[in-house]
């Protein structure tokens, strides 16, 4: 199952058909896959997570059992613990310390679910996690990622909180790369981070689209920068455009 075979299958059969047809191969390869996923929530509703959990259950079980997802706040046992303001440093209990550990190793697939949060007045304080803005958290995690998947419309371009018809200050809730559909404002670039980003818009994206794209990334079927040509002008994979 090489890259071209996968991409051809997806473009002909669709994401769901591809997973159905290649399920045994994908499961087999997942068992020896080394890539890991770090999944961080910004301004979102966990709907993309819920969509992902509705994907093919055998593939999902394999991914969960094989510990392909090493960080995900809704699924993990640990929480963040601070005693008198000091972070407890036990990775088995403390999700914050655990994340620091992961970031040191680097090389993971960073999934961003939900919009980045810039407001109010560019402070990022509309979303604080462990006292820091989620923007800071995502930028920090992005610095050591090998590729970033902006999952869902919120992460792709601001989505619901960044809806242009709303009375919200739209700039308060941008996506990872796009603010709204057209304005490209590369927050990561501003912080000197140059990492490949794939957008998978959709509210939520279909379970099979999320699963197929994650499988391609986990199995290293697509790599960057060499596969940049597989993306369209909105940084969507041409064969899995979401929506």
């Amino acid at each position: 199952m090489d890259k071209q075979e996968c991409l051809d299958a997806i473009s002909i059969l669709g994401a769901g058909g591809f997973l159905e047809r290649y399920k045994p191969e994908i499961r087999k390869e997942l068992r020896s896959a080394e890539s890991k996923v770090v999944w961080i929530h910004g301004a979102g509703c966990s709907g993309c997570t819920m969509s992902f959990l509705s994907a093919d259950q055998e593939l999902l079980s394999t991914i969960l059992e094989r510990e392909c997802i090493i960080y995900h706040k809704t699924l993990l046992e640990q929480s963040g613990f601070f005693v008198d303001g000091v972070l407890m440093r036990d990775p088995e209990l403390d999700i914050e310390y655990y994340l620091e550990d992961i970031e040191k190793t680097g090389g993971y697939i960073l999934v961003v679910e939900g919009a980045l949060v810039e407001g109010p007045a560019n402070s990022g304080r509309y979303c604080l996690i462990a006292g820091k803005s989620v923007r800071e958290r995502i930028i920090k995690a992005a610095a050591r990622a090998k590729v970033i998947l902006a999952l869902g419309t919120c992460a792709s371009c601001g989505g619901v909180p960044g809806d242009r018809r709303s009375e919200n200050v739209v700039r308060d809730f941008p996506g990872v790369i796009f603010r709204g559909a057209v304005e490209r404002r590369i927050i990561l670039d501003e912080h000197g981070i140059r990492k490949p980003v794939i957008n998978l818009p959709g509210c939520p994206p279909k379970p099979e689209q999320i699963m197929a794209l994650l499988a391609l990334l986990l199995l290293d079927k697509i790599r960057f920068p060499e596969d940049s040509g597989l993306l369209d002008e909105y940084l969507r994979l041409k064969v899995i455009k979401g929506g």
């Binding site: 929530h41 509703c45 966990s46 706040k73 809704t74 699924l75 993990l76 046992e77 640990q78 929480s79 963040g80 613990f81 601070f82 005693v83 008198d84 303001g85 999700i95 914050e96 979303c127 604080l128 996690i129 462990a130 006292g131 989620v134």
Partner: peptide, 14 residues
């Protein structure tokens, strides 16, 4: 003593 649980995992949202 002050214990802060932040973030609390396994709940929806932050």
């Amino acid at each position: 003593m002050e214990i802060t649980l932040d973030p609390i995992s396994r709940v929806e949202g932050h």
